[in-house]
Design a protein around this nucleic acid. Sequence first.
DNA 1: TCTCCAGAACGTCATAAGCC
DNA 2: GGCTTATGACGTTCTGGAGA
Length: 285
Amino acid sequence: MSKCSRKKYIKTNLRQMTMDTIESRQDGSVTDSVAENESAHMQNQTGQNSIPTLTQVSVAGSGTGRGSPAVTLVQLPSGQTVHVQGVIQTPQPSVIQSPQIQTVQVATIAETDESAESEGVIDSHKRREILSRRPSYRKILNELSSDVPGVPKIEEEKSEEEGTPPNIATMAVPTSIYQTSTGQYTATGDMPTYQIRAPTTALPQGVVMAASPGSLHSPQQLAEEATRKRELRLMKNREAAKECRRRKKEYVKCLESRVAVLEVQNKKLIEELETLKDICSPKTD
DNA sequence: TCTCCAGAACGTCATAAGCC
DNA sequence: GGCTTATGACGTTCTGGAGA
C-alpha cells in the first residue's frame, strides 16, 4: 500500500467510525457507554467503602455562580459541620462544539404511533442533513471562547486601516494548559501573543484585474481573461487554504488545552471524593 | 552519506455555507 | 440565483529523524 493510499485508508476509516458512533447514539439504540462506564466506575468506588448517608447537605448561595466552585456544608452524623469547597463547576460547553450538532434532537425510543414514526423519519433525515454540514473552526472557536474565558478568539481579518501593520495580524494564544512538543503539559498563564501573516490581498505580479467584458473583442482576449480569472481564483483559494489550515491547527490546540484543563479538573474531583470518603467513613480507632 | 519513512505543509478541486 | 468564502479530500512535495 502506498503512502498516500494508506493515509486515505486511515482517514476513511476514521470518518466512518465517527459517523457510526454519532448515528448509533442518535437513534437511541446504543447507550452512552462513556457515561455508563463513568457512573459504574463511581459506583464501584463508592460501593466498596459503603459511605454512610449524610444527614444534611446544603450549598452556600454565593458559590453557585458560573464557574465558581460552590462551598458545600456537610453535616456529619456526629453533628459536626464541615465546609467543603467543591471543584464542580457549572457545565461548560463541550469541547467539540459544533452549533449544528448541538441542535440535534435525540429521538426517544417510546415513539410508537404513526405520526411519531413519520416524525422520526423526518428527524433522522434532518439529522443526517445537519451532520453533513461542515463546521467552521472560526465559529466553533469563537463560540467556545465566548463561553470559556481564556480561550482565544480567532480574529476576523482586519483591513489595513485598522491600525495593525499590513499583512500582520495579532493573535492571542490559548492561555490555559497546553501540550508541548515534548509531550508535557505546561501551564501558560500569560503567554505572549504572537504574530502571524495574514493572507496578502495584493495581487502577485502578472495577475491583472479583469477588464470589463464589454471591452473584450477577440476570442484570444476572452481566453486570456478566463486564464486571469482562473489564476486569481486559484491564488485566493491558495491563501484561503493556508488560512483554513492555520485555523484548524489552532482549533486542535485549543481542544488539547481543554483536554488538559478537564484532566486536571477530573483529578481534583477524584481527590475531593476521596477526601469526602475519609471524612464520612466511621472512625475505627 | 545515503536511503527510507512518517508527518507536515502545500496546491488544487469540489462543494457546502453564507451573503447580497 | 450568482458570487465568494471555508473546508474536506486528494495527491504531491518538503523536512527531519533513524538506521545501514
